[in-house]
């Protein structure tokens, strides 16, 4: 069946709410409004206000309440409108969710899922467009996942809910309307491994979330010129599935990383460092990175486009690598 990314997420929520009475959804405008991006539309009518909870604009309180409810035996799903707003809850996420298990010597666990939108491309300017998931991937105690496909949008939530530790799920804003095919029996997917979305022997392109499409588009263009790119979708940003990336690099000997975060101190930097540490002598060309320009995301379309990683930039980087 054909379904959008948004609908796939909604189906995942519906399944979780149906299958596990401990699950509830909480966040700003998730109920009566139907979700800021329409993901939870109709769920209030189906599951009622106890389990689809509209909250005040109090990110720290409702994220922390999600942590507390998880400690208290529930399986909360907290929605934060965008990653930019999650900064108002950073204390709760990092000082509580990520640390309670360790600080308590293993007595406590926080089985919480926090969903949020990330990324640019919709002319929403600097306070709605940043990609800060790489920051979160810095933090021990968290698991960071970024579904890029319809199948993962449908299947990652359940797996995340089964995780005994806090999971942050990043939904790229440009993906909600993207349609795709989903098997009728689609179910939970693993969140441990990266996936090879396109096989190729000439160069490895690494992307995730919103940049997977950029990498795949670039791979098509490269193929027209006879360059076969292998495209790796990271899927999970922490812990990184280093093996899948490095195995690909050992086959192609060239690495291009596409990251919508800023280059400095980014996830792309982490992947490049690991490739250099573990596979330097496999590389036939310097590692290439295609990242967002070091600027708060601007409003005007031509400026925003210029700030973001584009398929043409990836093609150019891959051609430099291939030589």
């Amino acid at each position: 069946m054909t379904i959008t990314y948004r609908e796939a997420l909604r189906e995942a929520l519906r399944e979780a709410l149906t299958e596990d009475e401990r699950v509830f959804l909480m966040g700003e405008d998730v109920g009566a409004y139907g979700g800021c991006f329409g993901v939870s539309l109709g769920l209030l009518e189906e599951f009622g206000p106890e389990r689809i909870r509209d909250t005040p604009l109090s990110e720290s309180a409702f994220v922390g309440a999600g942590i507390g409810a998880a400690l208290g035996g529930m399986r909360p799903i907290v929605e934060i409108m965008t990653v930019n707003f999650s900064l108002l809850a950073l204390d709760q996420i990092i000082n509580n969710a990520a640390t309670l298990r360790h600080m308590s010597g293993g007595q406590l666990g926080v089985p919480l899922v926090i969903r949020m939108t990330t990324g640019a491309g919709r002319q929403l300017a600097a306070q709605h467009s940043h990609s800060l998931e790489g920051w979160y991937a810095h933090i021990p105690g968290l698991r960071i996942i970024a579904p890029a496909t319809i199948e993962d949008a449908r299947g990652m939530l359940w797996t995340a809910l089964e995780d005994p530790d806090p999971v942050l799920l990043f939904e790229h804003g440009s993906l909600y309307n993207v349609p795709g095919e989903l098997a009728a029996d689609a179910a939970a997917v693993d969140i441990d491994r990266a996936a090879i979305r396109r096989a190729g022997g000439d160069v490895t392109l690494v992307g995730y979330g919103g940049t997977l499409r950029t990498a795949l588009t670039a791979a098509d263009e490269l193929a027209a010129d006879g360059v076969e790119a292998e495209v790796v979708d990271l899927r999970t940003l922490r812990p990184l599935d280093e093996d899948t990336v490095l195995d690909s690099v050992r086959r192609t000997h060239r690495l291009v990383i596409v990251d919508e975060g800023w280059r400095t101190g980014s996830l792309s930097a982490e992947i490049a460092a690991r490739a250099a540490e573990a596979a330097l002598y496999e590389l036939d060309a310097p590692i290439e990175r295609v990242c967002t320009a070091e600027v708060p995301i601007p409003y005007a379309k031509q400026l925003e486009d210029a700030a973001l990683p584009q398929a043409a930039d990836v093609v150019a980087a891959a051609r430099r690598a291939v030589g």
Partner: peptide
């Protein structure tokens, strides 16, 4: 916030 969540 943890207390609010435990109570919830």
């Amino acid at each position: 916030p943890l207390a609010v969540g435990l109570a919830l």
